[in-house]
Amino acid sequence: MHKILFSLAAILLPCFSVNAQTQSFTTINFPNTYTNTITTGLYTSNFRSGFIYQTNASINYGLTGPKASLFRFRWLAHDNGTIDYATDADQVMFLDGNGNLNFKGTLATGGNVGIGTAPTSEKVTIDMGATRGSVNMISDGDAAAYTDLKFSVKTTTGLTSGKPTAWLASFRKDGYFSNDLTGPTLEFYALKKDIGGYYAPLLFKSNGDVIIAGARNATNGSVAIGTTDPGEYKLAVKGSIGATKVKVTLTGWADFVFEPAYKLPSLSELDTYIKANKHLPGVPSATEVEKNGIDLGEMNKVLLQKIEELTLHLIDMKKEIGELKQQNKRLEQEIRKEKNDN
Results as ranks from 00 to 15, higher is better:
K192T: 07
S139G: 09
D140S: 13
D127S: 14
D174M: 09
S134E: 08
L186H: 10
Y198S: 02
P164H: 04
N179T: 12
W167F: 15
A190C: 12
K173P: 14
R132L: 04
D148G: 01
E122T: 03
G162H: 10
P184Q: 04
T120N: 02
S134R: 15
G158P: 00
W167G: 06
P164I: 01
D142G: 11
S170P: 03
D194I: 04
G183V: 06
P164K: 04
T147K: 07
A130T: 02
G196D: 04
T182R: 15
D142Q: 02
N136M: 12
M128C: 11
S178C: 07
S152F: 08
L168N: 10
S161E: 12
K154A: 14
D127Q: 11
V135F: 14
T157L: 11
S170F: 06
Y189S: 00
T147S: 12
L186N: 05
F188L: 07
F171A: 12
D127V: 06
I126H: 08
D174I: 09
T120R: 04
S161M: 06
K192L: 07
D194A: 08
T165C: 01
T125C: 08
K192V: 05
E187S: 01
T147N: 09
A143R: 12
Y198L: 02
L186Q: 06
D180S: 05
K150W: 12
S178A: 14
A169R: 09
R172E: 11
T185I: 06
S161Q: 12
L181N: 15
G196A: 06
D174W: 13
K123F: 09
E122N: 11
M137D: 00
M137F: 15
M137T: 11
V135L: 14
R172L: 00
A145R: 14
K163S: 15
T165P: 02
V135M: 08
L159H: 06
A190P: 11
N179D: 13
L181G: 15
D174E: 07
T160Q: 14
